[in-house]
Design a binder for these strands. Structure first.
Lengths: 151, 151
DNA sequence: GTTAGATAGTTGCATATGAAACTATTATGT
DNA sequence: ACATAATAGTTTCATATGCAACTATCTAAC
C-alpha cells in the first residue's frame, strides 16, 4: 500500500533537501569566498579547527564528512596561505596535528559572526517551535540515513 | 542580542543540511548509478522529463536548479544512450523539445519505485506530524533562501 | 527591413573532484 | 625480531564542473 506511485520532484524529499542545501551553501559561500578567497572545503576545515584545534586530517575528514583527499588539498592551500599550522604528533609519526594560525584565527573570528548572521537570517521565517522541530527531525534523518548507508 | 556567538558545526543549520542531503543523495545515486549508469544530473533530467515531457533544456535547468551547461551535457549523453528524444519546437528554432524515449521510459519506470522506496525508508523514522512539519519547513526555507539569493 | 540586443544551447578552457595507487609509519601475529 | 596487515596522508590520473566565449535564432526599436 504505497502512498505514492508517481514521482513529483517538488514533493520528493531528497530533491527538496538538495535545493535548500545548495541555496544555503551558495549564499554563505558567496560571502566568505569573495571576502577571503576561501573555498567551501577550506572553510569547513577552518570551521572544525576553530571549534576543535589540534585535530588530525583524518579527524577533520570524519567530522566534516569530507573526502580525505579533499581535506589534504584544503589543508595544503591553507598552509600555503599561512592560515593553518601543522605539527607532528608526539606518539604517531604518521599523524599531523592541525590548528588555525593567528592569521587563520583572525579570519575565523570574522567569518563566524557572518555565518551565524546568515543562519539567523534565513531561520527568521521559522518560529521557535518550528526550529526545534526541524532540529529534531534533522537529527533523526541523519541517523536514519547513516544506517541506510551501512546497510 | 545574538543567541549564539560560537559556531558549533553540529548545530549549524547549513552544515547539518548538507550532511543530510549528501547522505540521501549518495544513498539514492548508489542505486541508479550502479544499475543504469546514470549520473545524478542525468537522473534529474530524466526525472523532470518523466514528470513533464516536452520541456526545453532551459526549462529542465530551471526546474532542477541545475546549470544549463550541466543540463546540456546530461542531455547529450542521454541522447547518445538513446534514452531521450529531441525534437524541434514548431515556433522557435532555437528550442529543442525533450522527452524520454521508450528506452528512457523503461528505465524511468524502474527507478521511480526504487527512489520512492528509499524515500519511504528513510522517512520511516518520522511520524505523520513530523513529516508534515518538515514539508512545511522546507517550503518556507526554500522561499526564504530564494529571497536571500536575490538580495 | 535593418540593426542592436536578448535568448537557447554548445564548446573551450581552467579548475575541482574522487578513486586508486603510492609512501611512510605503526600495529599485530608468530 | 620479522613479516604482514593496517593506517595517515599525498599524488596521479581520469572525469566532472562551471564560467566565459561562441553560434544560431528570435525580438524590439527605429
Amino acid at each position: 500500500m504505497p502512498s505514492k506511485q508517481r514521482l513529483v520532484l517538488d514533493e520528493f524529499l531528497p530533491y527538496r533537501l538538495s535545493i535548500v542545501t545548495n541555496r544555503a551553501s551558495a549564499a554563505i559561500a558567496l560571502h566568505y569566498s569573495k571576502r577571503f578567497g576561501l573555498s567551501i572545503p577550506e572553510w569547513r576545515v577552518m570551521a572544525v579547527l576553530g571549534e576543535t584545534p589540534g585535530l588530525s586530517a583524518r579527524q577533520v575528514a570524519e567530522r566534516t564528512e569530507m573526502d580525505k583527499v579533499q581535506v589534504s588539498r584544503a589543508v595544503q592551500s591553507l598552509l600555503a596561505a599561512k592560515r593553518l599550522t601543522r605539527g607532528a604528533d608526539k606518539d604517531d609519526g604518521r599523524v599531523a596535528r592541525l590548528s588555525l594560525s593567528e592569521r587563520g584565527l583572525a579570519i575565523y573570528r570574522e567569518v563566524v559572526p557572518l555565518a551565524l548572521d546568515l543562519e539567523r537570517e534565513f531561520l527568521s521565517v521559522l518560529n521557535a517551535k518550528e526550529r526545534a522541530a526541524l532540529d529534531a527531525t534533522l537529527t533523526k534523518l541523519s541517523l536514519s540515513l547513516n544506517r541506510l548507508r551501512k546497510a
